[in-house]
Amino acid sequence: MQGINIVLKREFASYFATPIAYVFILIFLILSGVFTFYLGNFYERQQADLSPFFNFHPWLYLFLVPAVSMRLWSEERKSGTIELLMTLPLTKYDAIVGKFLAAWFFTGIALLLTFPLWVTVNYLGEPDNGVILASYIGSWLMAGGFLAIGSCASALSKSQVIAFIICGVTCLLFILAGFPLVLNSFNDWLPAILVDTIASLSFLTHFTSVSKGVLSLRDMLYFISMIVFWLVFTSVVLEFKQAD
């Protein structure tokens, strides 16, 4: 626990030691605004809720999360600090979890900074703030799932660009698996149970209900088990590629 905390602190501070953090947050805020108001027709809908905002989160995360996660391990590997980190009296999980949490808290901060939208919607009408809170939590959990995939992708390669692409493509697959168009194409030739399994693995399937404010235990468990699975997989990859 102690080790996780120390790694987390260092890693988190390192985001803010370079302009990356500020650029990321700025772009995240601008894009979420653009999506909400222009693509989501926030005003035209005449409804006091934030679903136009949350609906676009999977797509927003698709290219913003890999940008955060790509440096997690690639950079350590490239600069050789991984050798330093792994020979300190820390377990591998201290390092993996600490780094993951730093990235997760960082995206959490970016998410929190979208609060003006919440203020706006409360000013304009009377939204169900419970729904909004549940959606925020759900969105953050989903970001965690994306980040865990990114952590694994980053462990695979010294190159941050490769890590970015692998993470992006994997996340895209996990989103598309729940996309009606894709599922329909499976419907014709796969048994229903397999189609349901594919759908249930998708971020989109689980996030759709979340963005409506229904944060069920099932969806939470899904996101948490995604995180756990990909972090365990990260450790396997690190073990496998230790000598590179």
């Binding site: 260092r10 390192s14 030691a17 370079t18 600069s79 050789g80 600090t81 991984i82 050798e83 330093l84 020979t87």
Partner: peptide, 12 residues
């Protein structure tokens, strides 16, 4: 341990 090439967190 001092690994080869003295890796360190450069932004620190």
């Amino acid at each position: 341990y001092l690994p080869e090439g003295t890796p360190a967190y450069e932004e620190m």
